[in-house]
Write a protein that binds this DNA or RNA. Structure first.
Lengths: 210, 210
DNA sequence: CGGCATCCGTGACGATACTG
DNA sequence: CAGTATCGTCACGGATGCCG
């Protein structure tokens, strides 16, 4: 929570007291992809100034959303990692992603792009398709790789390729967006050769059906 | 969208470009309760300055989230009303409310209170209970009244009493919060005399069961 | 009187430079 | 590498004034 509060006895205002400031939710979006170093965060958040990033990270720590941890035992480098409370913001980011996806049609030349920024909306789209099946789906784009996790503790995602994916999707970012928007069914994309779907097992089968 | 953008090709960032600025989502929360005049908004949002409120309302209009409409035909007073796009932010506010409710335990002396600020979290709690039943639930607190709508177009809420509620709840704000948090079942509150539940029909029956 | 616009002081933000 | 220090700019909050 910043030192400025809305001073309202309202759960929405309370939430915004903590994560309503500029850059806060985007930092959480980065940390949802896994532990990150300060420099990684600064690299993947073009435009954020170093002092604001440092200040937000302190706020996240103080409010119990993230912890600062040594990367290796007795090493000098630190990583920031979300606590369960911080990971609880995934539904908030998912709702924002759902609402914001229609505004994603035009890609402005000034826009930065990272592969895992597509993880949340794709997770939203695929979650109803997986049903009860659990596992990991690796996604390979030209711009980079990320993976989606479906397990009993709820959905999640991470940056980089998955270690042992139960299914693997290879597609372009544009195709990924079509799937996200619902204008392209996964099965149809596979049939048309625009999506490569690898893997066997119930999770891959469930994806191939839809 | 303010004149400052995150410049990221990401649906979350796009959403925050539009509604990420201070007060924006709280203005939307007010407008979700129904059309509001400028003065009403200013009265129910303690702390917002007049120019920021005017600026945010212009932004909401320009971005297609709200429209400015004459209250009466050929009258001098205007009201601001959400468009469908603006009402589409209810899931975002609901997710924020879910996440923020645990932080609502302590009520600080500086906190402002409005009855309908409890509408979103209560709506979230009651929505799974109503099942397929549609209708309106009037809620009467000491601090004021609001009502919840359950119909095929999705859940919603409004300020003030309902015209013809299918069910009516009378309870204290503290009791309402217990229900919201899930620490008090509706049926148990009724049995203990802390909640008065009036009304007949499937919606009232569905609420009485749980 | 409702609906802003203007002015001003303060604090947040963004860019760059610098340090342990 | 991981921040802190500095500084100019802009956004915010409060008060006041204008205008229908």
């Amino acid at each position: 929570m910043p030192h400025r509060s809305y001073d309202q006895y309202c759960s929405v205002a309370r939430a915004l007291d903590v994560v309503g400031e500029r850059w806060a939710l985007l930092i959480v979006r980065e940390l949802l992809a896994g532990p990150r170093r300060y420099t990684d965060l600064h690299a993947d958040l073009p435009g954020v100034s170093t002092d604001v990033l440092a200040s937000r990270l302190k706020d996240l720590e103080r409010d119990g959303l993230a912890v600062r941890r040594r990367l290796t035992r007795s090493g000098a480098t630190y990583v920031y990692e979300l606590t369960p409370r911080g990971r609880g913001l995934l539904p908030v980011l998912a709702a924002l992603a759902d609402w914001g996806t229609p505004a994603l049609e035009e890609r402005r030349p000034t826009d930065a792009v990272r592969a895992h920024w597509l993880a949340i909306p794709l997770l939203q789209r695929l979650a109803p398709l997986t049903g009860p099946h659990t596992g990991t789906v690796g996604v390979q784009l030209d711009e980079g790789a990320f993976h989606l996790r479906f397990d009993e503790s709820g959905p999640g995602y991470g940056d980089g390729p998955a270690e042992q994916p139960d299914a693997r999707l290879t597609l372009s970012a544009a195709t990924c967006l079509e799937v996200t928007r619902g204008t392209l069914a996964l099965a149809r994309g596979v049939k048309e050769g625009r999506i490569e779907l690898d893997g066997s097992g119930p999770l891959a089968d469930a994806l191939a059906e839809r």
